[in-house]
Structure formats: C-alpha cells, structure tokens
Amino acid sequence: MSDWPWVIASYALTWIVLGVYALQIHRRLARARAEYETEKNRSTESLEVEA
C-alpha cells in the first residue's frame, strides 16, 4: 500500500501545475480581450473627434 502516496502526489502535482498555468493563461486572455475592446473604442472616438 506504500505505492499510493507516490501515485497521489504525481496526479496532484499534475493538476496543480496544469491548473494554475491554465488559470494564468485564462486571466491573461481575459485581460487582453478587455484591453482590446477599450482600445478599439478609444480609437474610434479619437477618429470621430478628428472628423
């Protein structure tokens, strides 16, 4: 039965590493999308002002 702690540790590590990394990417993508929306709106505004 002494095998299981090692097996559990391996699977837990896999989940922690990939989970944390996926969340980090998720946040980065969400931030990039938000920034893009703001920037796009600003650009159209400034163009309208100029016109």
Binding site: L18, Y21, A22, I25, H26, R28, L29, R31, A32, R33, E35, Y36, E39, K40, R42, S43, S46, L47, E50
Partner: peptide, 26 residues
C-alpha cells in the same frame, strides 16, 4: 493551452498597434 496563449498574445499585439496608431494620430 497553446491556442489560448497565442490568442492572448495576438490581442496584445493588436492593442499595442492601436496604441501606436492613436499616439501618431494625436
């Protein structure tokens, strides 16, 4: 994961491009 990360970096580059464009316009 690669796809999501790639999407994020493409958007970041577009934001940078828009910022430059706006700076030039002002």
């Amino acid at each position: 994961l690669i796809r999501r990360l790639y999407q994020a970096s493409i958007l970041q580059r577009k934001v940078e491009a828009l910022e430059e464009e706006r700076a030039l316009a002002t």
